[in-house]
């Protein structure tokens, strides 16, 4: 059960993020860029049969959700890092708050911030004509995938930051994930991929499952299996990322 000290620490991290929103705003800006500019530039290819009936906007929308979390995770754990640098972490460490929550609170705050901007993106997407095939269920499904993806990236980013003691190193995870976008079905459906090696790589790429899972929920251009696999894969990676971050807690110098 979450006690009052844990709640206070999570609240503090959220307030800090609201006061210094550079990272989540960067992710949000990047996502809006993908949504609006890509649709305006190459939206015409959405008329091809392989994109289904919902158009290119619904096809490209999942990438905005993915890039949003990537932007947020690049600055993951900024509160934790600031506390480590100022020595305030030591004071928190000396409080009766559970020590795991000192590491978890910033991860939870980063993930919740990503979730909030996902909701904003969904609202903007809906206003621009993104199709949600199953209505509210689709929205909840997209939010679930967004939550798990954000938790995965923020957990790993915080874990790296804790181990190196440097805030800039949090972006290592984002940089590592970035090439995966181009090795998946980000811009084109599988049917239009010509290089067989790329098609083969995309099957081994977890980003493909997140994208296709979202596409099942939006325009229904993919199979439901992709959604279930995406939940399973992200469920496992998010748990692993939190374990990775928590296992680094002992390395924080107090």
């Amino acid at each position: 059960m979450i006690n009052s000290a844990s709640f206070l620490l999570i609240k503090r991290c959220i307030v800090k993020l609201i006061k210094q929103p550079a990272s989540p705003l960067t992710g949000f800006g990047m996502s809006l860029f993908f949504l609006l500019v890509y649709n305006a530039g190459i939206g015409g290819i959405g008329d091809l049969e392989a994109f289904g009936n919902a158009g290119y906007l619904s096809f490209v929308f999942p990438i905005t959700i993915i890039s949003l979390a990537m932007g947020s995770s690049a600055g993951a754990g900024q509160t934790l890092n600031a506390d480590m640098q100022s020595g305030y972490f030591k004071r928190l460490y000396l409080s009766p708050a559970p020590r795991t929550i000192l590491v978890l609170a910033p991860i939870i705050a980063d993930t919740l911030s990503s979730l909030f901007f996902s909701m904003l993106l969904i609202a903007i997407g809906a206003a621009f004509g993104v199709v949600f095939k199953f209505g509210l269920l689709s929205v909840l499904g997209v939010l679930l995938l967004s939550f798990l993806w954000s938790l995965t990236l923020c957990g790993f980013s915080s874990g790296v930051m804790i181990r190196t003691g440097q805030h800039q190193s949090a972006s290592i995870v984002t940089n590592a994930v970035f090439p995966l976008l181009f090795l998946s079905t980000t811009f084109l459906p599988r049917e239009l991929m010509q290089a067989k090696w790329l098609l083969a790589v995309s099957w081994a790429n977890p980003v493909t499952y997140v994208l296709e899972g979202n596409r099942y929920l939006l325009a229904g251009t993919s199979s439901a299996v992709f959604f279930y696999l995406a939940v399973l894969i992200l469920g496992v990676t998010s748990v692993l990322s939190v374990i990775y971050a928590l296992s680094g807690a002992g390395k924080i110098k107090v």
Binding site: A5, L8, D83, S86, Y88, K90, R91, P96
Partner: peptide
């Protein structure tokens, strides 16, 4: 301890209140 373990972004009053609340 020897070093000042203080959050530089918090106000004096808020830091004291937060510290007290952490202790229930």
């Amino acid at each position: 301890l020897q070093d000042n373990e203080i959050d530089p972004a918090g106000t004096v009053e808020n830091l004291l209140i937060f510290q007290a609340r952490l202790f229930g």
